[in-house]
Computed example of a mutant assay.
Amino acid sequence: MNQQWLWAVPVSCAALLMTACQERPASKTEQAAAATQEKSEAIPLIQAKVVPVKLSKPEACDAEGCTQYEIQTVNSNLKWIDDYFMDRVKKADPIAFSSAPNEKINTAEGASPDLSQSSTYIRFVSQQYDRATFAIQTYTYSSGAAHGMYHQEFVNFDLKNKKRLALQDIVVKGAEQQLLNALYDSNSLWLDQHSVERSKLQLSDNFYYGANGIVFVYPLYELASYAEGMTELTLPYSSLTKLIKAEYLPSLPKYPNS
């Protein structure tokens, strides 16, 4: 009996030591904190600067005249975004990247060739956690025109899924007409002043996340005169809770019922 008792002592001690060495399960608070940290580390904080693009033909000429090109893009810490914009500018102005020689210009003797201008500037606008907004600003002037034309296109990215967000990606399925009605109602005073009827207003796929709501941007002349510039209509976030998918809306404060 004494020998059996002595044999059981080291086994019991070993069991106690193993129990003491087992890792304590993480609390729910610690698990949530770890999950939040892991999630935040997965979404990079964008760092971007504007850089000039080296062009094969900064001045391209055909039989009608010449066009001077200037293109600036972004250099960021996200290569897939940089590649997206480089693909865009190359498709928009392929002649500026062409290695083919310029054509001979048909001009009267002693006359200067017609000279047009085309410029593109891309810049980083803002980031809201897993959504980022950039802007493509373009300006074109055709020789002899009364004035140039400019445009600003906002490009929104889903950083988590590494894709560009179109309006159809963020709107709740089947809510397009409700969204359009809400947009008109929120801007009815300005639209009435510019004689824009409800039936004439369309949703714009050119949009960005503003401080107080989603801003829909319209081209020159579509809703107002050239002098008034591109029109921006804002729809407050508070009106979008049932119209925009929750994952594409910023977190809103909840106020107590009065």
Rank of each mutant, 00 (worst) to 15 (best):
S142N: 13
E64R: 08
I105C: 02
A224D: 14
N102S: 11
F216W: 06
I214Q: 09
L179M: 12
Y84C: 03
S238E: 15
A60N: 05
P250K: 10
S116L: 06
K79Y: 06
V196R: 08
N161G: 01
L159D: 05
N75K: 14
L167G: 06
S99K: 15
K91W: 01
L243P: 04
V172H: 01
Q178V: 00
G213E: 12
V196T: 13
T19M: 15
S239N: 14
P113W: 04
P253C: 09
E153F: 03
Q68F: 02
N187P: 04
K162V: 04
A100L: 11
S188F: 00
A145H: 09
K91I: 01
M1Q: 10
Y226I: 10
D130H: 12
S225W: 02
N156P: 01
R123Y: 14
W5H: 08
W190K: 11
H194W: 09
Y255W: 09
Q137E: 14
Q68V: 08
T140N: 15
K173C: 00
A32W: 02
S188Q: 15
V50E: 12
M18W: 13
L220G: 02
A227Q: 12
P256T: 08
A15F: 14
N181S: 12
T120S: 11
A227Y: 10
Q3E: 14
A32F: 03
A26N: 05
L235W: 07
Y184W: 07
G213S: 12
Y129G: 00
F207W: 13
S56L: 08
S40W: 07
T120W: 01
I214C: 10
A146R: 12
A224H: 07
A20Y: 14
I105H: 01
P94C: 03
S199W: 00
V51Q: 02
V155I: 15
D114T: 03
K57V: 01
N106M: 07
R123K: 15
N181H: 07
L249Y: 07
K39D: 10
A166D: 13
P236H: 09
N161H: 15
W80E: 08
R88T: 08
S119A: 12
Y255D: 06
P101C: 04
K163F: 03
N77S: 11
W7F: 05
S40K: 14
K104H: 04
E70D: 08
L179Y: 06
N156F: 01
L78I: 14
F124G: 09
F97V: 02
L115C: 00
S225H: 06
I244D: 05
V171E: 04
I136R: 14
N156Q: 09
Q127V: 08
P52A: 05
Y84T: 07
L235N: 07
A60I: 00
